[in-house]
């Protein structure tokens, strides 16, 4: 584990990714304690105050400090994306490994259906689910998890097909182990590396998708200072106070970049031979 981390930070991309993630983690854990102002503190004299010593990143239409809102908002953005990705990846991985284990016609049927489900674009699927389940951050997480599962299933299944033909799996089948045992104890642990890499990269999509849902008004609800919601709010005043727009946009972008870099870094660290 520590060896992996060392290999990860040896490349500049990995180092930047890990550093950014550390910053984000600090904001998620200690954001409210570190923020200079309360995120809801209204200051009518400071409406649309440009970035300066009073408000480092400026103030919004109610004079609320944007930096404080960002720091507190990290909690309502990043952990949501993590949970959604984790649940979606786990479900997808189990479907993928199960399908590879069953093999033959069953595998074919599962995968064709899986591909068919993927014909519904992720955002559309999430929107449909949220419109049924009701607006809100929790439902948006469920929707993103469901939208992610088929993609993960496809990735996992392609890796698991090779594992399926390994001797230790054949031995387990010959020993008469149950399907559940073979899927969870023999096959899943051996497809973990690619799953972890793929899910790490997907967290950045989840961050963007979650922010998009909030932006469209169906994800996190006001007065939460979720980042996508902050962009939606600031759009009305974007010509008066562009900083209100740029700050949360940058926060979303940096988070997405951080997870992308970490995913790519992990891939390099785990397969040192691949030069790309």
């Amino acid at each position: 584990m520590i060896e992996l981390l060392i290999r990860l930070v040896r490349r500049p991309q990995g180092l930047v990714g890990v550093a950014l993630l550390a910053l984000i983690a600090i904001a998620c854990l200690f954001g409210p304690a570190l923020a200079p102002y309360a995120p809801e503190k209204i200051d009518f004299l400071g409406r649309f105050r440009p970035p300066g010593w009073q408000n480092w990143l400026g103030a919004d239409q109610f004079g609320r400090d944007i930096l404080s809102r960002l720091m507190v908002g990290a909690r309502s953005t990043v952990p949501m994306a993590l949970v959604a990705t984790f649940v979606g990846s786990a479900a997808g991985a189990i479907i993928g490994v199960g399908s590879a284990y069953l093999g033959g016609r069953t595998d074919e049927a599962i995968m064709r259906t899986n591909d068919a489900v993927m014909a519904i674009p992720g955002l559309l699927m999430a929107l449909l689910l949220v419109s049924t389940l009701g607006n809100g951050a929790g439902n948006a997480v469920v929707a993103i998890a469901v939208a992610f599962a088929p993609g993960m299933a496809r990735v996992t299944r392609s890796v698991a097909l090779n594992i399926r033909n390994q001797d230790y799996v054949k031995a387990a089948i010959a020993r008469g182990e149950s399907a559940v045992w073979i899927i969870f104890r023999e096959m899943l642990p051996n497809v973990m590396a690619p799953i972890v890499i793929e899910s790490t990269i997907r967290v950045s999509f989840a961050v963007m998708l979650f922010a998009t849902l909030s932006f469209l008004g169906v994800g996190a609800q006001p007065p939460a200072s979720e980042w996508g919601l902050m962009v939606a709010d600031a759009r009305q005043y974007m010509y008066q106070a562009p900083w209100g727009l740029i700050a949360p946009s940058a926060a979303i972008a940096l988070t997405a970049i951080a997870f992308n870099l970490l995913g790519d870094g992990l891939r390099d660290a785990l397969n040192p031979k691949d030069e790309r």
Binding site: T212, G228, M238, A256, I257
Partner: peptide, 18 residues
Amino acid sequence: AYLGVSLPEFVTATLLAL
């Protein structure tokens, strides 16, 4: 390219419009 895939559409759209 990295930046392009790390910005959600609504951010790219708003920034370009701005």
